[in-house]
Computed example of a mutant assay.
Amino acid sequence: MKLRIEISYKTPKGTETNFVSDEMTADTALLISDDLRRTGRIKNMIFLDDYDSSWTLKELKKYVEEVETEPHNIFVYFDGGFDIETKKSGLGCVVFYEKNGKAFRHRKNRLVNSLDTNNEAEYAALHLGIQELENLGVHHMPVMIIGDSQVVINQLNGEWPCMEKTLNGWADRIEDKMKEMGITPEYELVSRKQNQEADHLASQALKEIEITSTIEVNDEKRN
């Protein structure tokens, strides 16, 4: 969850004004709010989320404590591959997340025979990633979705229209599932090199090598 801090500030001589901060994570908001309160000059402070709902300091602290025991700080990498000769598709996704003070990497791939194009395979790979989020118990969280498919990323973030009926169906399915789970997505388009782990999983699926794994990792491994 991203937040803005809104404060009413009062100088020693009694002059008052209001400030609203840039967006930041809940953890950062708590750190900054503690520092601001030490000045003794904050008359009032509230926290505003992406939906302009307000949070008190007590409510925010409780939220952060509860989130710590659930998957959070989530990044989903996805990639789909399509073999024209065999009409088979390989789907790959990698989910990085934190839970109970530890960082994890979850990998999953799948071979499917029911798709017709590479773009459809890309959408199906992201759908697989969303399914894995559900399996991990992710709900009501912001999620960064990362891929090298210009079609999928630009259509889902609203920059490109989705005119093909089949792809539009996949987009609706993904967006409906995220809404059901309370996921707030952010999208990032990267190069194929930056997406090579998901790409490798998709290639392994086409070779009928099945991968499902979850391991603890260092934060640096996501980069």
Rank of each mutant, 00 (worst) to 15 (best):
K43A: 13
N44F: 13
I46T: 12
L48V: 15
D49F: 09
D49E: 12
D50R: 10
D50W: 07
S53K: 15
S54R: 15
W55I: 10
T56V: 04
K58H: 04
V67T: 02
E70R: 07
P71M: 03
H72L: 03
N73M: 08
I74K: 08
D79P: 11
D83P: 14
I84N: 14
E85W: 02
T86L: 09
K87Y: 12
K88W: 07
S89A: 15
L91R: 08
V95Q: 06
V95R: 07
Y97F: 11
E98S: 01
K99L: 01
K99Y: 03
K102V: 02
R105T: 02
K108E: 02
N109L: 06
N113T: 13
L115G: 10
L115R: 07
T117R: 04
T117K: 01
T117D: 10
N119S: 15
A121Y: 13
I130G: 11
E132S: 02
N135G: 12
V138Q: 00
H139P: 01
H139G: 00
H139T: 09
H140Q: 08
H140S: 10
H140C: 04
H140L: 06
M141W: 00
M141V: 00
M141C: 02
P142T: 00
P142Q: 01
M144D: 01
G147L: 07
G147S: 04
D148W: 05
V151F: 03
I153M: 14
L156T: 05
G158M: 11
W160E: 06
M163V: 10
M163Y: 07
E164H: 12
K165N: 08
N168S: 15
N168V: 05
